[in-house]
């Protein structure tokens, strides 16, 4: 499983540009539309896909992602269905890495061993679990690594140099740098600060460092991409979905197209990033 992700980052490195990592909430606004969006992402320019696992109490997420999770749960999304989304996607795409992102409780209730087996069977390449810091590695991180599933860790501005080695120790795939102290979807911080932070992390690891939280436009993607190995966009995408829904909250005629349009714009930004860096 680690192979697909490593291969993708190696190819991007050869291409000389950062990755565009797009987040969608599994099952938002419904299973079939979510699958349609997921299938459209690579063509629109997404290099990796983060697939959100809805949770009733997403404590690190802002209103946009909270509402996306609520829409999905209301439509009957479960962890089993999110795994199914990934395997349905894999039927037509064996190249684009998928990272599942969410909170621990649904996984814990599903059963860690059973979950990891199903993750592998569904063609998922990595996991990001927000509420499992390194202190809790025995829960899921170590079992995941033992089975060859990447465990991607978040590093934040509060993760100082003393703590960084502990955070990076069992991290694989890439490091997700959270660009600010806060919840998802907040305002983007100063890109120049982010460059320093990425450099600091790179001093401790050879893994790609991708940056998220607050990236909303092609210009943001370009500015952040100049300093990082990848740019994560989440809230902007789920907001785009929200904006395309009908009055009663169902998928609209343009929901998939609206997301594809946004992602194409972001992809342009990412592809221009290193030109900026080279100037």
């Amino acid at each position: 499983m680690t192979a697909r992700m490593d291969k993708r980052f190696a190819a991007l490195k050869a291409e000389g540009r950062p990755a565009l990592i797009t987040y969608i909430m599994g099952g938002d606004p419904d299973f079939e539309t979510s699958l349609g969006i997921m299938k459209a992402l690579p063509d629109a320019g997404a290099d990796l896909i983060e697939l959100g696992m809805p949770f009733s109490d997403p404590m690190a997420d802002g209103p946009a992602v909270q509402m996306a999770g609520q829409r999905a749960l209301k439509d009957g999304q479960t962890l089993a269905k999110t795994l199914e989304l990934a395997s349905r996607f894999r039927e037509g795409d064996t190249e684009t890495p998928i990272v599942m992102m969410g909170y621990y409780n649904p996984i814990y209730v599903y059963g860690v061993e059973r979950f990891l087996d199903d993750v592998i069977a569904s063609g998922i390449d990595g996991l990001i679990v927000v509420d499992l810091p390194p202190e809790m590695d025995d829960e899921l991180c170590i079992p995941a690594l033992a089975k060859g599933v990447n465990f991607i860790r978040l590093a934040t501005p509060t993760t100082d140099d003393k703590r960084l080695p502990a955070v990076l120790k069992n991290t694989s795939g890439f490091v997700y740098y959270v660009s600010m102290n806060g919840i998802t979807g907040s305002a983007l911080p100063d890109p120049s600060l982010i460059g320093g932070a990425v450099k600091r992390i790179k001093g401790h690891t050879a893994l790609p460092v991708c940056v998220g939280f607050g990236v909303k436009t092609a210009d943001h993607a370009k500015a952040i991409g100049a300093a990082a190995d990848g740019v994560v966009v989440g809230s902007a995408i789920v907001s785009q979905i929200a904006g395309s829904l009908t009055k009663d909250g169902k998928a609209g005629p343009d929901t998939v197209a609206a997301v594809a349009t946004l992602v194409r714009g972001l992809a342009t930004g990412v592809r221009a990033a290193r030109l900026v860096a080279a100037e």
């Binding site: 404590m59 690190a60 621990y104 927000v130 509420d131 499992l132 810091p133 390194p134 202190e135 809790m136 860790r153 978040l154 590093a155 934040t156 501005p157 509060t158 993760t159 100082d160 703590r163 955070v167 959270v178 102290n181 806060g182």
Partner: peptide, 8 residues
Amino acid sequence: FVAETLMP
């Protein structure tokens, strides 16, 4: 069981 931001 907290986010990395809060762990320190």
